[in-house]
Design a protein around this nucleic acid. Structure first.
Lengths: 226, 226
DNA sequence: TCGTTAACCTGACAGCGTCAACCTGAGTTC
DNA sequence: GAACTCAGGTTGACGCTGTCAGGTTAACGA
């Protein structure tokens, strides 16, 4: 809550303030644990600057919040890149677990960017990049002939499963979650991966209501059809 | 945006205003498509009443919004109850698809109740009830011996998968989604159900990074282990 | 030394959630 | 039918928010 008035930047270095504002906002966010603490006045005071000065570098409060949250997504991009190479399915699993760990490590930023009315009418570029990496991992699995179908569609399914788990963990912590989050995530990744790999091997010719039951029969998971 | 001043309720019928406020708020929500339109002033004006009168029946703006969103969740409870009976896996599949359809039909209410910092530090009772139904459906499947494990944990996994898909559909409509949402949901339900049923049949003795690959080998989905 | 202009500030606006205090009139009582 | 009561509201204000038009200051080139 420091208020030491910032010394004005020298000519040509006005963009420095942008970084300082982002830094101040980031600190406020992690300290308070909620984006409600991101008041323009609070951010500006923290940066030692008057409130409207924020508008010199951000068109909007929305733009500021989005910029703050986008900062940590670069980190996720690196994690995704690291998970490449070796067995495609090992890489894919690592990818999913890294994603979940990232989301749980930055719950506020994750919520703001992924669980909101879609800020700016378009996929956040950072998220799009990560999704692209994910599609690449899936494509590598498809190339082995084990996974079948369009990589993009398959990736959406896997993404959905992991996102569902972490977003529920973040937004509904009071649910009866198991204590070991890491194991839960690992289980979800296995479930989604195995399901995605096997479901495409059963032709879809039944009414939706019968499909799941038929799938199980096809893999001999049930002793006798109901 | 009607403003006709409401005639004061008669003695003993003060609770009528609560219903009228809820109704006004519900209309505003569906008309605007976002909870930002739920201003206490706008709601009160719509109900033909002064702003602070809302506090006669709701402790908080948060309480009002929550009450508005909770109204439609009863409908989901009915849907879950209807999906009972018959083949347990057919019922489970119907359950998942009904849940998804509900979420997509009421995106704002779904987002407010499921994709927020957990309003009120606890599971929303309506959501808890629905989750209870879900656990029952899963338990019926476990009783057949096909699904293995704790019903509650299994239900969490299935819930996660479906929630992930619909919450992404709601919050990130710009993603490259397939056009047929119904088919997408059906696919996710199959994927999750099949994965959940089969993943428990492989003992978990490996480091997490190898698990998914090993699962696939166990089901002969890969010609040769990497 | 002076003028230019990038960098930033002052003061104000409307709208928000919320609260303390006041009013009003339907229903009861005498 | 007049007086009383208290449920069922209203009035007016407070501090907070995002945002904007216009003024100020000081670093630099000439």
């Amino acid at each position: 809550m420091t208020t030491a008035r910032r010394v004005r930047a020298r000519r040509g270095e006005g963009a420095l303030l942008r970084e300082e504002i982002l830094r101040a906002a980031e600190d406020l966010l992690t300290e308070a644990g909620t984006e409600d603490a991101l008041t323009l006045r609070a951010v500006a005071m923290r940066a030692g600057v008057s409130t409207p000065s924020v508008y010199l570098h951000f068109t909007d409060k929305e733009a500021l919040v989005e910029a703050v949250c986008l900062r940590v997504w670069d980190e996720l991009g690196r994690l995704f890149a690291e998970s490449s190479g070796g067995d495609p399915f090992v890489a894919l699993g690592n990818c999913g677990r890294a994603y979940a760990r990232f989301a749980l490590d930055h719950p506020v930023q994750y919520r703001v960017l992924m669980m909101r009315p879609s800020a700016g009418e378009g996929v956040p570029p950072a998220a799009a990049t990560c999704f692209g990496h994910m599609v690449d991992r899936v494509a590598a699995c498809v190339a082995t002939g084990v996974l079948q179908g369009e990589p993009e569609a398959l990736a959406l399914g896997l993404w959905s499963a992991v996102h569902g788990c972490v977003s529920l963990l973040i937004a509904q912590p009071s649910f009866p979650w198991p204590e070991d989050r890491e194991a839960l995530i690992a289980h979800i990744v296995r479930m989604a991966g195995l399901g995605a790999a096997l479901v495409t091997r059963v032709p879809r010719t039944l009414p939706p209501s019968m499909e799941l039951a038929a799938d199980l029969d096809a893999f001999g998971a049930r002793p006798a059809a109901g």
